[in-house]
């Protein structure tokens, strides 16, 4: 279980998180929605320790994330970055098996490559892709490789940051289905950051909406449409009119 209590983060005078309270149950798929620049990505970066919160506490299975051994803690996580964040200089299979080629989880190269090819197959990519460089792949293929890397070491917790941004609707649907299948199959706890409502409906068990640096609403995905919260209502229906200010 992941619990955030009163998490705050500011960059100078920009108060991005103003006291975020959120609980993600073990094995649940939580999708965090919210407008651009509302701190969705900062939220998961705080959990991973990529950004240090100014205040509040974050615990994973009851343990404060700032007081656990970093390597063992991070070994429990997989993360799909918005742009893929694949390492340009490494072929695809070494990107996927990165964690298995070095550090505590290191395995022989042949074994790591075989696992990488297996994971690539899991996300619908053939073995012929393994030796290519990331720059030789399309955006959709890069997302799939990123997804394969995220699940390569069978993590307990997976984060997806804007998994369908920049993809055509068909490829976005494929990625959404893959995420849902993988999370269900692995029994992993997942947090997905998105503002794509199609993704929300495909991936989420639970939904949280962040606005004004706080969690505005949270509940099961099935109750989202009937939330009666005007902010949620405006966001999920993509209305220009409503309590969320928009630039026009």
């Amino acid at each position: 279980m992941i619990t955030l209590s009163g998490v705050t983060k500011s960059f100078g005078s920009n108060h991005v998180l103003r006291g975020v309270d959120l609980t993600v149950g073990k094995g649940r798929s939580m999708v965090v929605i919210g407008g651009s620049g509302t701190g969705k990505s900062i939220l998961i970066k705080c959990i991973l320790g990529l950004v240090t919160p100014d205040g509040g506490s974050i615990t994973v299975d009851g343990r404060d994330v700032t007081r656990v051994p970093r390597d063992a803690f991070l070994a429990r996580f997989g993360m799909l970055f918005q742009g893929g964040a694949l390492f340009d200089s490494l072929p695809v299979w070494q990107n996927v098996a990165f964690r298995l080629l070095r550090g505590e989880l290191a395995r022989p190269w042949a074994e790591a490559k075989s696992i990488a090819i297996e994971k690539l197959a899991r996300v619908g990519l053939g073995a012929e892709v393994a030796e290519r460089l990331p720059a030789e792949l399309s955006g959709g293929m890069q997302k799939r490789v990123g997804l394969a890397r995220a699940i390569c070491a069978d993590p307990e917790i997976i984060f997806f940051d804007e998994p369908t941004t920049g993809l055509d609707p068909i490829m976005a649907g494929v990625i959404n289905d893959l995420i849902r299948q993988i999370v269900t199959e692995m029994g992993a706890t997942a947090i997905t950051i998105t503002h794509d409502m199609t993704s929300v409906r495909a991936i989420a068990d639970d939904v949280a909406m962040i606005h004004g640096g706080k969690i505005r609403w949270t509940g099961p995905a099935s109750e989202m449409d009937a939330s009666s919260d005007p902010y949620v209502d405006q966001f999920i229906h993509g209305r220009a009119e409503g309590p969320i200010e928009t630039l026009r």
Binding site: K45, L48, L50, L74, A75, F81, G83, A85, R99, L105
Partner: peptide, 11 residues
């Protein structure tokens, strides 16, 4: 975000 990715991969 490749540097962030390195950190999440315990590197």
């Amino acid at each position: 975000e490749q540097i962030d990715a390195l950190v999440t991969l315990s590197t």
